[in-house]
Amino acid sequence: MRELVYYVAVSLDGFIAGPHGEFDAFLVEGDHMDGINADWADTIPTAVAEHLGIAQNRSVVDTVLMGWNTYAVGLPHGVVSPYRHLRQLVFTGSHAVESDEVEASAENPVEVVRRLKAEEGAAIWLCGGGALAATLAGEIDRLVLKRQPLLFGSGIPLFGSRPYAPERFDEVGTTAYRSGVVVSEFERIRD
């Protein structure tokens, strides 16, 4: 069965973006980038990977899930299909996507993910945002957190509002970089 992987950059105080979706404070230069780009090339926007000469073969992930706000980040810049090398699903009940390469869904994200997990293929990447992550928390099999040496103070939390419901994950690997970025991977403990 395919895994749902929540792979995301996060500040030390638990935010994946600023209060208005800002993410430009995250470090995109430094020794951490070579490791991230090698291990997670499929999570780089297609145009960026092409510009950098990074091959994307869909071996790690082949599907990306986004909430509307995550998808909409690129729209003012004319980016209507950010991950055109992947199957792209955007969860929205009120917006239309501007590309035939992107699927919009108003369905319950949990039901969609359960169907996707039953299909053949590589992992499913939960790109963001925090509200969608909160909805899908029980379906997440693996967390890969790119902890950045930053405090945001406020913003969009890693997991939006969700009721108190402890769920256990085991750390399976951590790499600390000189840049201060720490990439930690966790697997869900299933009963």
Rank of each mutant, 00 (worst) to 15 (best):
D24P: 01
W40P: 00
E50C: 03
N69P: 00
E29A: 12
A123T: 07
L89H: 06
A133C: 01
E119W: 10
D13S: 04
S59V: 06
A17T: 02
I54K: 03
A17V: 02
V64W: 01
E103R: 11
V97L: 02
E101A: 15
G121C: 09
V8H: 08
A104G: 11
L132Q: 04
A106R: 14
Q56P: 08
G30R: 10
M66C: 05
E22V: 04
L52D: 13
E98Y: 01
G14P: 07
V10C: 12
F91G: 05
T92H: 08
A96F: 03
P45S: 06
H20A: 15
V80K: 10
R114M: 10
D62R: 11
G67A: 05
V10M: 14
G93A: 14
G35I: 09
I124W: 03
V64Y: 01
G67R: 05
D31S: 09
Q56D: 06
G53P: 02
T70M: 04
P45N: 10
Q88E: 14
P109N: 13
V61E: 06
L86N: 05
V61K: 08
F26Y: 13
L89S: 07
A49I: 09
Y7V: 07
A25P: 01
Y7H: 15
G21P: 02
F23G: 13
V8C: 07
E98A: 12
L116V: 06
L126K: 07
G21W: 03
I36V: 14
G128I: 00
N57M: 12
G121S: 11
E22A: 05
A122S: 15
S11V: 06
D34Y: 03
G14K: 06
V48R: 11
M66K: 03
V102W: 08
D42E: 15
A134L: 04
E107V: 02
K117T: 08
E120R: 14
V64H: 01
E29C: 02
D34R: 13
A131M: 04
A122T: 12
H20V: 02
Q88F: 09
A47D: 13
G18L: 05
R115N: 10
W125P: 08
V48A: 13
